[in-house]
Design a protein around this nucleic acid. Structure first.
Length: 595
RNA sequence: GGCUCCGUAUUUCAAUGGAUAGAAUUUCAGAUUCCGAUUCUGAAGAUGCAGGUUCGAUUCCUGCCGGGGCUACCA
């Protein structure tokens, strides 16, 4: 029973007693700092029930609560707002409850399973900044669902098939000269990406040359020899030409090796990988069946379409006139395959950028038309783009921020700034290196996760490694400092004990405030799942750390003669530390014991 | 053009229809016995424009202005 829900039922009792009315829509919110109290009941909406002015009703309810409820100590009324002050015993009890609950912040498995897809890059070039937002977001939402008691299956779809990889293949075949990532001393994904760039350059020169000879831009695009080679490779691949399949496997293999290294650094993982090359045929089969059942229709040229005009959308292509599949086709197949593989999942979450909102709207509609009732429990976790100060990232213009480079830079910057502070006396080389990674990655993850996923955001590489303010390292530091306090406490033999704590009768305001924030943790985890938003957790953990720092600053923890009070402060510190740790872990961020 | 998302301090982000719109950053002024100055306190500074709905609007509705995205037999 949380304080909020207890208080709600007390207020309901009061309204029933005073006005003989039932209501479960009470507007309860935290009290503004300028007024006394911790909880505020907004009384304007109650006028209909009470038939009184808000101020009068507020005063009456306040008086009733103080007289009859054990938890409400005082009240004051400002306009229609009823500010309530709770008794300190309630706060102490709350703290003890959290302190003794080892599983705080983690609900037990309640039987529901859910699948989350994230990452899902193309296999023709390395991961960039946008992928980082995707990966951190997906991984974190998975963690948040787990904390809410779900069994979560993390998957991704690898877009290993299609013209994009054939472009890299074509360029490598023409200019690669048998080179491999090893011989070039490059990461596999960067190596393949290099040939994708080569393709683009050559292609542009060829198009330009053809246009100078009088071809239209469209024709030139199709006629360029290197493009013809890529298209030819794609067709041969579809016909399972052994040589092409071999080349395709080799180049994708290089990319996977590179991706794996990056995933490891990012700290993300997957339970199962789906490959487009494995699912597009199932998609095609399903589409054909849909045609037979009259859900889709075939045009004269043999292409297959779905008509969504009744749903306010357009007609959408599902199979090309030559019978080959498109993006939508394989996504249909993938979705169906996943529900076959994991029959118990209640739904799927797709972590994909918001430029594909239309695609997923269509996909879910199609799946529903095909009769899959789970289609309405598929959700597109759509996130905004990451912009740079120079504007939008464009791979063709080389204005992308490479994921590997960025992580490397963040770690180096963390090292530089930590060394400037010069507090690494007793740590080994290995520990120090680990710490720099923890701080660098922590800063990066926190920076990308603290913003509401739905919104586009700005990433300034120069400013991203802040150690102060609303940042990951600030919170990491707060945790490390609490740990130092706890080490000292245990060295002088202070061990909190619930029975002793419950003897504490009065609290300092700063202590009350920390406990109040602490008490909101579980509701924040629920909220984060409901909104698919790690930003909720990031904001909460920051608030908690800030609140603790104020407490730390205003109250000398070890200058307390009263043993029970001292224990309470240590219990408080310990509880905050573990809440910070749990919260940060939901964001995929480690918190060091020392830093 | 149609559909859709977004416009908040210098800047980057907050704000279930609630009180004097919060943080961080920047600048200036201060604090610190205990555990660790990556901390804390104070000051300055904002809702694109015009209407509407109501006790109350950053939030909901309409229009305008400005920006992004989608609107492929690409993925």
């Amino acid at each position: 029973m949380t304080i909020d829900s207890t208080l709600r039922s007390e207020i309901q009792k009061a309204i029933l007693a005073l006005y003989n009315q039932q209501t479960d829509v009470l507007q309860l919110q935290p009290t503004n700092a300028e007024f006394a109290g911790s909880h505020t009941l907004v009384c304007f909406p109650l006028t209909r029930l009470t038939k009184k002015k808000p101020e009068e009703a507020a005063a009456a309810i306040g008086e009733y609560l103080v007289a009859s409820s054990a938890i409400v100590k005082e009240f004051n009324v400002v306009k229609g707002f009823l500010n309530l002050t709770l008794s300190d015993a309630v706060w102490v009890e709350t703290l003890i409850g959290i302190y003794e609950n080892a599983g705080y912040g983690q609900l037990p498995f309640h039987g529901e399973e859910i699948m989350i897809e994230y990452s899902s890059p193309n296999t023709n070039k390395p991961l960039h900044l946008g992928h980082l937002r995707n990966n951190f977001l997906g991984w974190s939402v998975a963690g948040i669902y787990k904390a809410n008691g779900y069994m979560v299956h993390k998957v991704q779809i690898i877009n290993d098939r299609g013209i994009h990889i054939c472009k890299s293949m074509a360029a490598w075949k023409l200019y690669g000269d048998g080179e491999s990532p090893d011989s070039a001393d490059m990461k596999g994904d960067h190596f393949v990406g290099k040939y994708y760039v080569t393709f683009d350059k050559v292609y542009k020169t060829q198009v330009k040359a053809l246009m100078e000879k009088g071809a239209t831009e469209e024709d030139a695009g199709k006629q360029a020899p290197i493009m013809k080679l890529a298209v030819d490779m794609l067709q041969k691949w579809e016909q399972k030409d052994p040589e092409i399949v071999q080349l395709w496997k080799m180049m994708n293999g290089w990319v996977y090796e590179g991706f794996d290294a990056t995933y490891k650094k990012m700290g993300v993982d997957f339970e199962k990988l789906y490959y487009e090359s494995d699912t597009y045929l199932l998609g095609r089969e399903q589409v054909m069946k849909g045609v037979d059942r009259g859900i889709f229709f075939k045009k004269e040229d043999g292409s297959v379409w779905v008509d969504l005009t009744a749903d306010g959308l357009d007609q959408k292509l599902l199979l090309r006139s030559d019978g080959t599949s498109v993006y939508m086709t394989q996504d249909i197949g993938t979705a169906i395959l996943r529900f076959r593989d994991f029959p118990k999942i209640k739904g799927q979450i797709y972590t994909v950028g918001n430029e594909q909102e239309y695609h997923f709207k269509v996909l879910f509609l199609i799946l529903a038309k095909l009769g899959y009732e789970w289609a309405r429990r598929c959700y597109h976790l759509s996130y905004g783009m990451v912009d740079l100060p120079s504007g939008k990232m464009k791979s063709r213009q080389g204005t992308v921020v490479d994921a590997d480079d960025l992580i490397e830079e963040m770690v180096m910057e963390a090292e530089k700034q930590t060394k400037e502070l010069g507090k690494l006396d007793d740590t080994s080389e290995e520990q120090a290196r680990q710490l720099f990674e923890t701080i660098g990655l922590g800063a990066l993850k926190f920076f990308l996760l603290k913003v509401d996923p739905k919104k586009r955001m700005l990433f300034d590489p120069n400013e991203s490694i802040q150690l102060q303010g609303f940042t990951g390292p600030f919170i990491q530091y707060t945790h490390a400092r609490i740990k130092a306090i706890l080490r000292k406490a245990s060295s002088i033999g202070i061990v909190p004990d619930a029975a002793a704590l419950s003897n504490v009768r009065s609290l300092e305001p700063a202590e009350r405030e920390v406990i109040q924030v602490l008490g909101m943790f579980e509701s924040k985890i629920e909220e984060a799942a409901r909104d698919y938003s790690p930003a909720v957790i990031a904001n909460y953990v920051y608030e908690l750390a800030k609140e603790y720092n104020q407490f730390y600053q205003s109250i000398p923890i070890f200058n307390e003669a009263d043993a029970a009070k001292l224990q309470l402060r240590i219990a408080l510190s310990q509880t905050v530390a573990s809440a910070i740790k749990t919260g940060m872990n939901l964001l995929g961020i480690q918190v060091p014991e020392k830093m």
